[in-house]
Amino acid sequence: MWRSVQRWRGLVIIGAMAAVTLWLAASGQLALYIHPRYNLFTVLMAIIAVVLVVGALVGRRHHDDEDAPPPPRRSRAIALTAAAIAGVFTIGMVVVPPATLSTATAEQRAINASAASDAEAFEAATTADAEQVARFTVREWATILRQTSDLSFFADKPVTELVGFVTPDTSDPDNVFYVSRFTVTCCAVDAQPLGVPVYLPGWSDEFAVDDWVSIDGEFGSNPSSDSDQPVVILPAEVTPIELPREPYLF
């Protein structure tokens, strides 16, 4: 039995993980794990892995060490444990539905810790016309708020259909929440949370943490004396929405 485990475990694990990768790509869920720019490369590597695994299975021949004594018990235990962990991980990728990163991760990584202090982006936002402003996402607004809290800057720059998930403001969770998104550079491991504060007293009566919403409104001085955010969105409308097809910002 040990010889069989040794012989097939690597091929089975590689084949299973490659098949799961192809399944995620076919179902449109690969973007929940990696940046879309790497999709083609990842899919090609998975296809190559499947081809090589099939070729290895077809071409298997008798091993010269068939009658050799098995390795020490400790080595076998380590090898079996590693194979079991890899197997459980692979099965879990199929059985457990892929999920987006949420508030729990955002709180661990600190919202807006990675918001860019980008002078060029700020200058572009200063001269943006109404059509461009209407396309601003959480990333653009978070960058702007990092640069300035001057309310005159936000005049004639309304918030239009700003999409994100609900994350409580730690300094005043009763009245203020963030509309949040994760930005991804390579994969979900390096995802960083960005958020724009929204003043809506009693928001938790209407929305749950991690609910996805679309917000229309305008920026203004924060009425909350407890919140650390000087400028917030004063919403005209907060609409619950379904999870976007691409929940991350790339």
Rank of each mutant, 00 (worst) to 15 (best):
P71F: 00
I85H: 02
E242D: 15
Q29F: 01
W8Q: 06
A19S: 15
S180L: 02
D210M: 02
S4C: 12
H62K: 14
R135M: 12
E206C: 01
E206N: 15
F250Q: 11
T160E: 06
Q6W: 07
A121T: 06
R74A: 14
I215N: 11
S224G: 07
A110I: 15
Q132G: 04
A142N: 05
G87V: 01
T42Y: 00
Q192T: 13
A124Y: 01
D65Y: 08
T81N: 00
D118Y: 05
I85Y: 06
P168Q: 09
R37F: 10
L30Q: 09
T126G: 02
T185M: 11
S117N: 14
R181E: 03
E140L: 12
V176R: 05
P71C: 03
E120D: 14
I48Q: 10
F177R: 10
P36C: 05
R181I: 01
A79D: 13
V179T: 15
R37W: 10
D210A: 01
P168T: 12
Q132Y: 01
D226K: 13
D129I: 08
D190T: 09
L22P: 12
R245M: 09
V213P: 13
A106W: 05
P230F: 09
A79G: 11
L24H: 15
L151C: 08
S214V: 07
G92D: 13
